[in-house]
């Protein structure tokens, strides 16, 4: 055993201002949550309900919704599963922007005013913050979001170079939360547009070197309601909680459709 040449560093210590993180007290504040309520079993009209709750600096909008549901009004309905920004269940319109309730810290919002929480737009509301996702998933299914390979099935995994993998890396991050599609003004009009999410997931396979059905997907998206309805308003890119460059992906699919037929 050799003698160490360097004296090992001692455990690190970070000086924190009193009241911030560490062992200090977490700051708490009062917030007003203004929730869009809709219950077709009671009334065909939607309404706003306000709840005043005391929350902490480490809390997210989802925690505030939980507090409301568990302590104030058990009838408030919303979807959430993992609560950590991976499952894509709790996309909602918070202060007019599509975000995941589980990734939006209350302290980052203006807590001096009521925080508005609405269901995402463009899809039929079923109850409170829950929308019917079926039209969204139908578009997703139509672009065939699975590997299609005409070659022989290998006995081991399908190998791919790091560069080929990098080509579609950005669009593999999608969690199908519908924040992009439901932020798109073209989708709001009549819900006919395939929507950014379907195109992003088509992009993931179109540019995958192992996939052989790129042409079929391009043909599907060359539809009247396909990529050509994109007006590049960038709402989808801004809404994506995963930071996917959605509008760029759509533009790349447009280019692919063009270079295939022109």
């Amino acid at each position: 055993m050799s003698t160490p040449t360097e004296i090992p560093e001692g455990p690190s210590k970070v000086e924190l201002a009193p009241g911030v993180g560490g062992g200090g007290e977490i700051p708490s504040f009062d917030v007003t949550l203004k929730v869009r309520r809709y219950d077709p079993e009671v009334s065909a009209e939607a309404r706003w309900d306000e709840f005043k709750v005391t929350m902490y600096g480490t809390d997210r909008v989802l925690d505030a919704l939980h507090k409301v549901k568990w302590e104030h009004d058990g009838s408030v309905s919303f979807r959430r599963s993992c609560a950590h920004g991976v499952c894509g269940s709790d996309a909602m319109r918070i202060n007019g922007r599509n975000r995941l309730a589980c990734k939006t810290l209350l302290k980052d919002l203006d807590t001096s005013k009521p925080i508005t929480v609405e269901p995402i737009k463009g899809l039929p509301v079923e109850k409170d913050l829950i929308v019917d996702m079926e039209p969204f998933f139908q578009s997703y299914r139509e672009i065939m979001p699975f590997l299609i390979n005409n070659g022989h099935e290998p006995t081991r995994e399908r190998l791919q170079s790091a560069e080929d993998r990098e080509r579609f890396d950005d669009t593999t991050k999608c969690i199908l939360c519908a924040a992009c599609t439901s932020s798109c003004p073209v989708f709001w009009t009549d819900g006919q547009y395939f929507g950014p999410a379907a195109i992003v997931n088509a992009h993931r396979f179109i540019f995958d070197s192992r996939d052989d059905a790129g042409d079929m997907r391009l043909e599907i998206l060359n539809d009247k309601e396909g990529v050509w309805r994109c007006r590049t308003t960038f709402n989808c890119t801004e809404a994506c909680p995963r930071g996917i460059q959605v509008t760029k992906a759509i533009a790349e699919v447009k280019q692919a459709v063009l270079s295939r037929s022109v």
Binding site: E126, D132, E134, P135, G191, N222, L258, S261
Partner: peptide, 27 residues
């Protein structure tokens, strides 16, 4: 019932319109 895989009729897309008109219009 939830998850009945029923799609609201106004969201159904008309199928069968083939052609590159929208692509050429965009170009």
């Amino acid at each position: 019932a939830p998850r009945s895989a029923r799609i609201a009729p106004e969201y159904m897309r008309n199928k069968g319109r083939k052609g590159n008109f929208e692509m050429y219009a965009w170009l």
